[in-house]
């Protein structure tokens, strides 16, 4: 099968296989780019209609070419590097932030056997890789040699690290239920029912912390437009700015996939092919993120911390303990 990607890594190394891998990654990148454009358009359109305005509607029919125009504009813009910037770090920071978001797709289970890497610790890999983005945000903020980005970068570091913990804790409940940290294995385990129902507490903790990881409203403190102008990417322009945006939107998609995989049965669903189901579930998540942006105000940094450490972490841990106890009890009965 063309999409039998799993075998590729374990297959003996040949140049053809390497080329094949390269092609597949390229295809994935193109898919991601198309998604980002669609998400940009979708966000502006949905946000527009929420706010009783039509959104972009001048470029092409219904404004569908707006993201293309945006990308062209960003590509042709001057790449300004502040005089005070640490040039090397400044240049590499958006790449550090974007690449992990793309790496997460390696473990996304599209359908049985359709996934790049059938990693045994897929969930762990996902959370570990997303953690790297924090470094990109901090170094981007620091290297700009400007004050607002510095504040944004520091806020980003504090927020992302704080929310990493409840995120992992809430995922552990699912891992415990499925008995595996393999993404495909977790989906298989949801054959009968979604983990959303038994793991409702975990889902709440997961959803909130994953929104915080995405740096979006109401957790957009590192960007916090009205407070620190644009946060860590204040000084970025042109295509480096586009990379930041790319990373942000890719994360929404990746987190949507993670959410669908962990709690909503991944590829399971009637009638439609598995990958479409996963896509639909992920897109509902993306829509929720956009809807949230149109509704909620921003949180404050101190309440954000209190919320993470005093509410979400205990919630996720309680969920974990309950899951473990119930699982032990069931195992004891049978």
């Amino acid at each position: 099968m063309l999409l039998n990607l799993t075998g590729l890594l374990t297959a003996p190394f040949t140049w053809l296989n390497l080329l094949w891998m390269f092609v597949e990654v390229l295809v994935m990148l193109v898919i991601i780019l198309i998604y980002v454009m669609a998400a940009l358009y979708g966000e502006r359109k949905i946000l527009g209609h929420i706010q009783l305005r039509p959104g972009p509607n001048r470029t092409g029919p219904g404004g569908v070419l707006q993201p293309v125009a945006d990308v062209i504009k960003l590509l042709f813009k001057e790449d300004v590097i502040p005089a005070e910037a640490d040039v090397a770090v400044f240049k590499i920071a958006p790449v550090i932030a974007f690449v992990p978001s793309f790496m997460t797709f390696a473990v996304a289970p599209w359908a049985p056997n359709v996934l790049f890497t059938d990693l045994n610790v897929g969930v762990l890999y996902f959370t570990a890789v997303t953690g790297i983005t924090t470094i990109g945000i901090v170094s981007g903020g620091w290297s700009s040699g400007s004050k607002y980005p510095l504040l944004g970068g520091m806020r980003g570091a504090a927020q992302l690290i704080s929310y990493e913990l409840p995120l992992v804790m809430s995922i552990l409940g699912v891992v415990l239920m499925a008995g595996t940290a393999n993404m495909a294995g977790i989906v298989e385990a949801q054959q009968k029912w979604w983990f959303f129902f038994p793991q409702i507490l975990g889902f709440v903790a997961f959803f909130i912390s994953v929104s915080a990881e995405m740096n979006r409203t109401p957790f957009d403190l590192p960007e916090g437009e009205s407070e620190i102008v644009a946060g860590y990417h204040t000084e970025y322009s042109g295509f480096r700015m586009a990379l930041w945006m790319l990373g942000e939107y890719t994360y929404i998609f990746a987190d949507g996939l993670l959410c669908a995989t962990l709690f909503f049965g991944g590829w399971h669903g009637p009638w439609l092919p598995g990958w479409l189901w996963l896509l639909i579930k992920a897109m509902i998540f993306v829509f929720l993120a956009i809807w949230t942006r149109g509704t909620l105000p921003r949180m404050r940094s101190d309440t954000l911390m209190v919320f993470a450490w005093k509410f979400l972490l205990p919630l996720a841990m309680a969920n974990l303990i309950i899951t473990a106890l119930v699982k032990a009890a069931i195992a004891g009965w049978f």
Binding site: Q51, S226, R293, T295, R298
Partner: peptide, 16 residues
Amino acid sequence: FLLDLGAMSPFLYAFK
């Protein structure tokens, strides 16, 4: 004021 607090939509509802 709501825009300052990071909520975007109220601004447009108010202006409507």
